[in-house]
């Protein structure tokens, strides 16, 4: 049996004396798309920085493909909410994608460049390779960030509210783009979001977090048919049932807080 892609057990983390994560356990299997939702300020972003190895944990253990985490590992890529600042403004779009390929050793500069172009094409930005990120729209900037993450050939993609700052139309487009890319490249994905509809629409599994110090209070399978569709999926009775359930859970915690 192969090890799960990501295995977090009993993770505890405090920041500046405030307990943020209080014994959280989470498992991601190969090829799964998992959404994590929770009430505002429950420590979702802190959780993600721990899972990505950017921060160490106080107690518990996180392992990635069977290896205990100790700094950001190979094979994991992160997409930030703050895409306009996560892209480097002095690099053109294609050079931003190349920036993500540092670990790709053995490939020539030419091969890397071709690969970067390929990834930009995959997110529909072939014509914007030589633009600077700040010369294209917010939605396109987020596509560049996605291309950069995919170009690093990760096995696991961590997404930190990647669509919180784009308009509704663009958000729907990028949601579908992410789903098709995840399937095409067979990636395991972990999406942190505060948008319950988005969480259910994207995922095979929705994990609901509690208030701080946060832990998992529900782990719900999403048995909706694939491929998803912005109109029909969201109208499915199962979608509405899950939505009500998750929203009720989050509201109950808000009143408890």
């Amino acid at each position: 049996m192969t090890a799960p892609v990501l295995n977090a057990s009993n993770v505890v983390k405090s920041l500046g004396g405030t307990p943020i994560i209080g014994g959280l356990t989470l498992l991601a299997e190969q090829g799964e798309f998992i959404s994590v939702v929770g009430p505002s300020g429950c420590g979702k972003t802190t959780l993600l920085t721990c899972l990505s190895g950017l921060r160490s944990v106080d107690a518990g253990e996180i392992s990635f493909e069977g290896q205990k985490l100790d700094g950001p590992p190979d094979g994991m890529a992160l997409i930030f909410q703050d895409y306009s600042r996560s892209l480097l403004p002095w690099r053109r779009n294609v050079d931003n994608v190349l920036f993500g390929m540092r670990r790709m050793t053995g490939a020539s500069a030419q091969e890397k460049r071709e690969k970067a172009m390929e990834m930009l094409a995959a997110v529909g930005l072939s014509k914007f390779e030589t633009h600077f990120p700040w010369q294209v729209s917010g939605g396109m900037q987020q596509r560049v960030a996605i291309a950069r993450a995919l170009a690093a050939r990760p096995h696991l993609l961590l997404l930190d509210e990647p669509l919180a700052a784009v308009d509704a139309q663009t958000r729907a487009d990028i949601q579908d783009l992410l789903l098709s890319l995840a399937r095409q490249f067979q990636k395991t994905c972990l999406l942190v979001t505060h948008d319950v509809d988005e969480a259910i629409y994207m995922a095979d599994r929705v994990i609901v977090l509690s208030n701080r110090p946060t832990r998992v209070i529900a782990d719900l399978a999403v048995p909706l048919p694939k491929p998803r569709d912005q109109i029909s999926t969201r109208a499915e009775p199962e979608f509405l049932r899950l939505r009500e359930k998750v929203l009720t859970l989050i509201r109950s915690m808000r009143t408890a807080a």
Partner: peptide
């Protein structure tokens, strides 16, 4: 964000 991005890569 820029530093963490670089570290994650």
């Amino acid at each position: 964000v820029q530093i963490e991005t670089a570290r994650s890569f």
